Amino acid sequence: MSGAELTRRIQEQTGKLNKDNISRTNAYKSYFDRHPEIKWSLLASFVSRNAGWSMTDLKGRLFQLGLTDVQQNWLFIMYERANWLIFSDAYPQLLLYQWSKLLGRPLFHLLPAFGVSSFMKTEWERFWHEHDQKRLMYALIINEQNTIQTPIIQNPLFKKNVFRTIPFQVCEWLHFNTVIFPTVEGVFYGVSVKRFSSLKERIKLGKQLSQLLFRPELFPAFFHFTSCVPHTGSRFDMERWAGVNTRSSPFLRTCYPVITHSLDGSKCDWFRGGSREGMFRDEKLPKTIELTEWYFQKRRQLQAVFSLEHWLKKR
């Protein structure tokens, strides 16, 4: 098979699996099951689950009190666009590694055909020879957050309609921007991001989450959850294990259409060269990682704030 034919096949497969949050989440998990040495793929599946829960929250009882229809739509588009961009960049890398394994030779010279940063080309070549699983996971975390920095975080429309809005700032103030790793025992673990718009803070969060996910005493419980609980996009997927009996958000595919995206010719290489080594430092986990009670307390706080805002608006 020629390089052009392989590129076309990978682009085709990526497009099919990049349909929506459900397909992306499942694709990342399925890939990890086939290639467990690529740890980032399981981390990406968990983060994608959380993104789905955040999307359907917008249509649930809690957020509908505090958000206008326009605000809901902008937040959804921001989550959807960011996750679509990450998948469109990362999944061809994963598939190219899969083909490299199958054929027994590295094919990373083809990465530029997918618009992948020169940063990742070097890191994949290094991984092929050194098999440093943690370094590759960190490299993919660094890459994904740089990938969305310009088109999402620095996009003037998202700044105006998402990051500078009162509901988004309230969520940051209450530390509600938290990635949760649930278990079927009803215990939730997780880490919060303090300033979502900060590239440095998001990379720090990704590294902390990777440490939490693969912590030897916790990993089996997290893996069991993601293997036996189908992802519907509804936060009820996780909350029901903690004794919640009432669904607070709908199934994702019942409330959102499939969105057609394009790169608009705007993708460029974010890496400008220079030393890499400082990028790969570990980050310490927060002292508190078991968040079950904290999580429900934050939900109650957010409900109180949005209920007050709703009451004031009606008056």
Rank of each mutant, 00 (worst) to 15 (best):
F214V: 14
F168Y: 06
N50E: 08
R315V: 11
K204H: 11
F251D: 12
R315F: 12
G3W: 06
Y79D: 01
G278C: 04
I259K: 15
L102V: 13
C171P: 10
I166Q: 09
F108D: 05
V170E: 10
F219S: 01
R49W: 03
L107F: 07
F46K: 01
D69L: 13
L102S: 14
E283Y: 01
T25K: 08
K313P: 08
A90F: 12
W173K: 12
D57W: 03
S23I: 05
W270L: 04
F76T: 04
F280G: 06
N26K: 14
R300P: 11
F63H: 00
S118T: 06
K16T: 15
L136C: 06
W270H: 03
Q211C: 07
T226F: 14
C171I: 13
S266I: 11
I38R: 08
Q211I: 04
C171W: 08
H175S: 12
Y28W: 04
K159A: 05
V47H: 07
G243Q: 03
M238P: 09
R49P: 05
K267S: 15
L103F: 08
P36E: 07
S262Y: 12
R315W: 12
L42E: 05
P216F: 01
N143C: 14
Y189R: 09
T288N: 12
W241G: 01
S54D: 12
H35K: 15
Y28A: 05
E5P: 06
T122D: 15
V305S: 02
N177F: 13
V116H: 14
F114E: 00
F196N: 05
P286V: 00
G190Y: 03
Q13L: 15
E239C: 01
W40P: 00
N83Y: 02
Q13K: 14
K134I: 09
T122A: 15
